[in-house]
Amino acid sequence: MIFTDTHTHLYSEAFQEDQDDMMQRAINAGVRRFFVPAIDSSYTPAMLDLKKSYPDQVHLMMGLHPTHVKENYLEELDHVQEMLDEEPFVAIGEIGIDLYWSDEFREQQMEAFHTQIQWSIERGLPIAIHCREAFDEVFEVLETYRGSSLNGVFHCFTGNLEQARRAIDLKMSLGIGGVATFKNGKIDQFLNEIDLKHIVLETDAPYLAPDPYRGKRNESAYIPLIAEKLAAIYNTSVEHIAEVTTLNSTKIFGL
């Protein structure tokens, strides 16, 4: 039984003291494929070092996270483009729009999102979308590319059923993580109305740990807990969840 974590920040400072132990716990739990999103240029060296340490298990993305779109965003985008030319990344991400903390750089976030989507289409790469308090804005951008080859994962999906169906209609799979295990997470109330072929598993480690670890540091080793919740939601086995979601991730990322 092979699990895939389609979104995990394995290079995070939160794992600085026990990164190898954390990775081994995940591998022992059956997680054999790790897809790692970028944040900004300051994390690139740590990402590349991680890939060197785990060349067969770790697959890197490259992109500029929307909360890191600041005054220097054009320089950061230049870095993304340079890295895409130098290294074999499997996706562009995480990218998108985040208006939770501030809308000061809303227009710059929109511009950066458009730019990176265009690069993904040009390079034939999927995207990993970050969306927080910005469903309308994200869908506004995605609609611009309806009918194109654009596809990817709507990371940490926390929307409603209508938004889930709209994302799928725009060729996005839904990244389901720890929120599905929360009592007030809400997505567990309608997820069984979404065909499992549109679902992938993720942790977003070190954030959003599933129950019973909610509020603590998340790890990729907790992917089976999310799979157990989905098995209950879909009335199937954990083995089936692992098999289908890993196959879905293979179709998205081409590995």
Rank of each mutant, 00 (worst) to 15 (best):
P206Y: 10
D188H: 08
H68V: 11
T44P: 09
E71C: 07
L125T: 04
S237P: 09
D21W: 10
L150V: 04
E94C: 03
D211W: 13
N192Y: 09
P55Q: 02
A164E: 07
F35Y: 15
A164P: 08
S120V: 02
A29L: 04
H155K: 04
L201V: 06
Q108G: 12
A128N: 13
H79Q: 12
A205N: 00
Q189M: 04
S12C: 11
F154T: 06
M172E: 00
R32V: 14
D85W: 10
Q118N: 12
S173P: 12
D103W: 08
R123A: 01
Q57I: 15
H114V: 14
Q19F: 10
C131W: 01
H130N: 01
S148T: 06
L48A: 05
W101T: 09
S173I: 11
R132C: 00
I92C: 08
E76Q: 11
M110C: 10
A231D: 03
S148F: 01
E86P: 12
H65N: 05
Q118G: 11
I121W: 03
E193F: 09
G152R: 09
I117W: 04
F105C: 05
G178K: 05
Y11K: 02
H198V: 13
A134M: 03
L247S: 13
L201P: 05
S102R: 02
L150G: 01
R106G: 00
I226S: 05
D56F: 13
N72Q: 14
R106I: 05
G185V: 07
